[in-house]
Design a protein around this nucleic acid. Structure first.
Length: 178
DNA sequence: CATATGATGGACT
DNA sequence: GTCCATCATATGG
C-alpha cells in the first residue's frame, strides 16, 4: 500500500494533478465519513516556478522535498490550503487541491479554503504521510473511468500567469469561481 | 515584539 | 468586474 502511494505521487506534479482529478477523497470526522470527488487541482514546482512560495525557501520548500504522498498544509490569509507532495524525494514539487465535488454531503468545497474549513483540515495534518493519517484517504478512480480534463492558468497567483498548471474536470459545476 | 505579506473569500459596484 | 477584512507565517530589531 505504501508502495502504491509512492508510485501514484512519485511523478511530475502536473501529471499527478491530472491523475487526481476524478479520485475520491475520504475524510473522517468523528464517526462520519465525508466523501468528495477531486475536481480541481494545481501543480506547483520550485526554482522554475515564480508563483510558488517555495522559491523563497523556508519550511514550505523543506516540506515539498519530503517523500511523495506527504500532506502539506499551507496557511494563507485566514485559510488552510491542502497540498500533496509529488515527484522524487528531494525535488520540491506539490499539487494543490482547489475544489471538491460533494458526494455524500452538502458542504461547500468549491475553493481551497472552503474545502479545508468544511473538512476540518488544519495545520495538524502538516507533514503527515497520506497513507498513515487516520481519517484522510484518497481512493483512486477506476482505470476505465474517463475524465475530461481542461487546463488554464493558475488562480490567485500574481506571477507566471501564462503557465497552464491548473487542471479541472470539464463542465463540473463545483469548480472555484475564479 | 513590530510589521509586511498573501496559492482567499465574501461583499460590493 | 473591484475592494478589503482577516490572520498565520516570515522576517527583522
Amino acid at each position: 500500500m505504501s508502495q502504491k502511494i509512492k508510485d501514484y505521487f512519485g511523478k511530475q506534479a502536473d501529471e499527478v494533478a491530472r491523475n487526481l482529478l476524478g479520485d475520491t477523497l475520504v475524510k473522517r470526522i468523528g464517526n462520519k465519513e465525508y466523501r468528495s470527488r477531486i475536481i480541481e487541482t494545481e501543480a506547483y514546482f520550485d526554482e522554475k516556478d515564480p508563483a510558488s512560495r517555495a522559491t523563497k525557501g523556508g519550511d514550505l520548500r523543506i516540506t515539498m522535498k519530503m517523500k511523495p504522498g506527504t500532506i502539506l498544509i499551507y496557511g494563507v490569509h485566514n485559510n488552510w490550503l491542502i497540498n500533496f507532495v509529488t515527484g522524487e524525494t528531494g525535488k520540491p514539487q506539490a499539487v494543490l487541491i482547489r475544489a471538491l465535488e460533494p458526494l455524500n454531503h452538502k458542504g461547500n468545497c468549491s475553493g481551497p479554503g472552503r474545502l479545508t474549513k468544511f473538512l476540518k483540515i488544519d495545520k495538524s495534518f502538516h507533514k503527515k504521510y497520506l497513507g498513515k493519517v487516520n481519517g484522510l484517504v484518497i481512493i483512486p478512480k477506476k482505470i476505465k473511468e474517463k475524465v475530461e480534463i481542461e487546463t488554464s492558468n493558475r488562480v490567485g497567483v500574481t506571477k507566471d500567469l501564462e503557465a497552464h498548471y491548473r487542471f479541472y474536470i470539464k463542465g463540473n459545476k463545483f469548480i472555484s469561481r475564479r
